[in-house]
Design a protein around this nucleic acid. Sequence first.
DNA 1: TTGAAAGCGTTACCAA
DNA 2: TTGGTAACGCTTTCAA
Lengths: 329, 329
Amino acid sequence: MATIKDVALKAGVSMATVSKYLNGGNVRQAHKEKIRSAIEELQYRVNPFARGLKAQRSPYIGVLLPEIDVPFYGNVVSALEKVLREDGFHCIMSSYSSDHGLERDHLQFLLSSGIEGLVYIPEHLTAEEFYELTSRYRIPTVLVDRMIQGVDADCVLVNNAEAVQEAMERLIKKGHKRIAFVAGPQPMFTAKERMVGYFRSLSDHGILYDEALLVNQPTTFATGYQSAQKFMNLPNPPTAIVATNYDMTLGLISGLRDMELHIPEDVQVFGFDSIELRTVLRTPLPIVHQPEEEIGKTAAKYLLDRLRGFAGEGRITRLNCTVYPKADA
Amino acid sequence: MATIKDVALKAGVSMATVSKYLNGGNVRQAHKEKIRSAIEELQYRVNPFARGLKAQRSPYIGVLLPEIDVPFYGNVVSALEKVLREDGFHCIMSSYSSDHGLERDHLQFLLSSGIEGLVYIPEHLTAEEFYELTSRYRIPTVLVDRMIQGVDADCVLVNNAEAVQEAMERLIKKGHKRIAFVAGPQPMFTAKERMVGYFRSLSDHGILYDEALLVNQPTTFATGYQSAQKFMNLPNPPTAIVATNYDMTLGLISGLRDMELHIPEDVQVFGFDSIELRTVLRTPLPIVHQPEEEIGKTAAKYLLDRLRGFAGEGRITRLNCTVYPKADA
DNA sequence: TTGAAAGCGTTACCAA
DNA sequence: TTGGTAACGCTTTCAA
């Protein structure tokens, strides 16, 4: 691979001049031409390591996710990437399989990779751990989808509790009183917030909470599937079930089907994420939809602000979910 | 940030010794201890740029995808990443939104990023373009899901034609003769291969090809949705429809539902990808399932082979899809 | 087993 | 506007 030296030699100027040309400094027009053609001929490419070493910066943004194959994250990241791309940044993505150890390790790795910024959907890390790892780097961070209690960073969330409340309202308005709820594990930020919405709705309407109607398990298809059986085998089964992410929704529907129960005749289902799923069933599935694209864009915007020098306190945005059907039919 | 020099000073040894310690060379036990604690105290981390510059290698694998939010790719990449991770590699992922220009640009970027290997799901690039971009780097490449005609590289594919043929067999065996087919755009590798399966089945069974029953459009929800209308509004509509990826399957089902048509009574549907979708419908959807995890693992294995020095010709693996229901009911 | 020193390719300062 | 040169932090060779 050709280096700046080769280009300089061929163009008949110094390395310093080539470097200036490359980085947009003042260079005589005649020299510009020569350098351009030398670069062309030699197929010269900047060595990213040399540049990174010297300049102490790189065009990388680290993206740390629990899972890479969850549609919600995919959609968020897709939007994020598109915005960052326009500013010349590229993403180093890493998923930690919802594993605490891997979450630490990968965060460590990203930080030590020379990234300029970090977009992070956290799961297990406490504020102490987070600061222990990140403090000696000064890397702007945006937390997405979840907060870490005690961490001062930009944060893009959705109105989890309110969205669930709206879903619950719809069900209650239709006469449902026994409503089951399939949520993620207790410590999970979004699970907690969504449960708040659930409890609030119950109490607002004077419905007694029945712990048999609540599941807190990993946010998987299996959890949804098993919840169907657990709930519908109760002596007093629910008349409606709310699932709080895509995989659990899918599993729930699948589980009900395998019990030969019909939606909505035998039990109503309120889904979450994946707007596409909505119109696949015989009866359109009511659903809570998170503004994935907007989440990604907002996170990117926050990060770019910081990279351009903004240094205020951590900003928190709560974006609104949409509940379908839009008109309350 | 502390450097090797600081560590050397603190540990009372030379930089070279620290470097050896870091890279697994022979170092006296007593020194090892000292170095370890110096590193600990100083919170020393290797500077990836300096190392990359000197060693001309890095722990990065480039992953270039058409879209990041397609479940099939997500699942493949998830498996890939897990295997590479165990060998200390990390993925720099980049998606090009199925855009030709971006495909070139991002490939260029990844190559110039100091990646050690490349996993690439191509779409528009010809062999000439590919070689033009890659030739001056010597980076092992694995093509996934699609081949580029004329490129000698490791390649992990599935048996597209055969899988479609098996799906068609099932339908034909049940008496279907008018079978419609929703495929991706013509130039797309997998679209072509899947169409081959379609045509072969038709001719094997002496069924005349009717061009009104074939759609070649982008592999999206919209395409599936519109296909439903196009096909079912024909004077002589099909009795079965095969969709050839996840989004098109979803769109197709959704479109049929909006026409108030029932599956399978009014028309049978054969889906593709997303095994989870299968059991969500009232009647389990027959489906072609690609071995996503195996694809990812195989690609990783191929790449690691190369990184360890294997230098043979490009190897091609064709993995088998599974058609559900497994037992031909 | 150790350490001095020569780069790796780039940028940025400073003098011309 | 230009070019010489000293870093940047690390690895590796070669002698000791």
